[in-house]
Design a protein around this nucleic acid. Structure first.
Lengths: 131, 131, 131, 131
DNA sequence: GTGGTCTAGACCACG
DNA sequence: GTGGTCTAGACCACC
């Protein structure tokens, strides 16, 4: 279970947990039906307060990603993998669209933007290749 | 002076003001040497708390975008236009890099990402063309 | 012995067992004097924790629905069928009263409520007729 | 602002708050655009912990009933009244259907059920009349 | 052991 | 003043 939490990231810890759990499910690191680490265990692992983990898990439940099994723990919902994958795509697209909109709105020249994007895109893909 | 403030945007109001003033300067809607609306006037116009406008202007002063003119108000700094344009570029590059990093970190396939980016890029440039 | 247990139902499993056993007795699927399945057997059949079955049976004993027969197991009490039927009626009346109270308390118009009730009542009786 | 909270009702306090706020909005005791009592104020009024109120309000936000106004408070969303009215109806119908289903499932005689319902319905309407 | 709820009190950004 | 987040620790029902 690899969750990288940064307490001073600016974004709330419980949101980091939510996002990473969803991404882990999307990447099939957690399979539907499996239980996720217990609130207490994860809170120990990440050295954060159990309430914070509980809140993240609660949000994941209201989103339908996790389902409670009484006295046993929280399990990944049956269709959570599809749900998480589609949401992951949506989130990423949203971020990109937002960045581009901002660029356009600031009257940045279209060619400059295109060039910039290709630079960054190249940077990412080569890094991914190295890995 | 056209500033579109949305109190329900989630983004802090003072940040919206900062950003829009800087973009207005970058787009040469305000020229270096010109004075910006007074705190009281702008707070009336936008129907928001004067403290909020004051805070925005304070931040803009620390960034060197605005300079106080004794007995007159706040004026756009001499090199503010260049400064704003370069910062705009930096901001945009940062956003794009951030979005791409997030995408990569979520184990999204590189080709999918590339395709997605090109889609959105096309969408933006055609829209810009229409405009 | 047909007991449909749903671990994800939200209702506690031991309560589901209690309720279904009592309803089975009320419907004369179990007759007074008959023995019910042993804790170990039922727990295997339903694939749930033996403690949970034991707790359900314990509750049924305190309610006087089941009586222990030394060396043999648990048997349906002599008057359990009447007891279960009357309790069933009480439970149902309670639920209905509760639902109506809630409706009234929510300031729903009395006529609307009446209409709604008759709709649902019709739905139930026709379904029962079909069956 | 009349919210009747019963700490030992069995249902969680935060849920009682949620339901009552929604019902209050449905009954137009709160109008869209108005702010609801602040977390701290309501927690004082009800003599409960602010966190509990905050949790209720948070749930109402995720449901789209309340919207945050930074530094000012929480306001009733524009279409919250319709949303709450329809949900109120749905909730009540659900409860009634559930009670009836349970009745049917327990093989209660249809005529008995009908008689029982009419008794209770009469009880409610006469009480409402008195009020 | 599990999650769920509640209390208490702290700190932060925002207006 | 407002809500948002986090920590700490308690109690409960359930398995």
């Amino acid at each position: 279970m690899l969750l990288a939490i940064d307490p001073k990231d600016g974004v709330a810890i419980y949101e980091q947990i939510c996002r990473q759990v969803k991404f882990a499910i999307a990447a099939q690191a957690f399979l539907p039906g499996e239980t996720v680490p217990s609130v207490r265990e994860l809170s120990r692992t990440l050295a954060i307060n159990p309430n914070t983990v509980a809140r993240a898990y609660r949000d994941l439940q209201t989103e339908g990603v996790l389902v409670p099994i009484r006295g046993t723990g929280l399990a990944v919902a049956d269709d959570a993998d599809k749900l998480c994958r589609s949401e992951r795509a949506k989130l990423i697209r949203q971020r990109i669209r937002q960045a581009f909109n901002e660029a356009r709105h600031s009257q940045l020249d279209a060619d400059q933007l295109k060039k910039l994007v290709e630079e960054e895109l190249g940077r990412i893909t080569t890094e991914a290749g190295k890995k």
